[in-house]
């Protein structure tokens, strides 16, 4: 608890909390990152589930940096948003569930790629698997992935309400 109190007392945390545009701009960045990470993962999951089959999985594999950039933006903006309200967030159940969903989302993504590459045994000269196969397991993991990322969005939205009991305000 001392650490989070110290974190929240840092000048940077206070700036996020008190400036007119700091908080909304960080939330804007956080939503852009959401588009990158969840957007790309949703496309991959839907492709694995049979949508837009003309898109090669290998092409999606090469586009994963978009998801990683989104993740990086959200880790950074997320840390700053956390710092501004650290003492209240550590006990916020929605925040804890959201963080769990994000960690789970990362694990599920790793499992999905592992499943698609057949345990990454065959790799060509460019360090990419030569073939991707969509197994029944991969489809199940894709469904779980969709649910987990939806959970991250859901609990992320609920954080503010748990914090402020602000449901009646209809705040964004």
């Amino acid at each position: 608890m001392d650490f989070v109190a110290w974190l929240q007392a840092l000048p940077l945390s206070e700036w996020v909390q008190t400036s007119d545009y700091g908080f909304p701009l960080l939330l804007a960045a956080h939503s852009i990152g959401l588009a990158g990470v969840v957007g790309m993962m949703v496309v991959l999951d839907l492709r694995v589930l049979g949508l837009a089959e003309g898109i090669p999985i290998a092409a999606l594999s090469r586009l994963m940096p978009v998801a990683w950039w989104g993740f990086a933006i959200n880790a950074l903006s997320g840390i700053l948003l956390f710092m501004a309200n650290a003492t209240r967030l550590v006990t916020n159940w929605a925040f804890i569930l959201k963080m769990s969903a994000v960690v789970l989302g990362g694990i599920v993504s790793w499992l999905l790629w592992r499943s698609l590459t057949g345990h990454a045994a065959a790799a060509n000269g460019r360090g990419e698997p030569a073939t991707f196969t969509i197994t029944r397991n991969a489809r199940i993991i894709a469904v779980i992935s969709l649910l987990v990322w939806f959970g991250a969005i859901l609990f992320g939205r609920v954080i503010a309400y748990v914090m402020d009991h602000a449901i009646l305000h209809g705040g964004g």
Binding site: L34, A35, V42, V43, W149
Partner: peptide, 12 residues
């Protein structure tokens, strides 16, 4: 926000 993820994923 779920709609945002669907729209932006496809758009990207």
């Amino acid at each position: 926000f779920t709609g945002l993820a669907l729209l932006m994923g496809a758009i990207l």
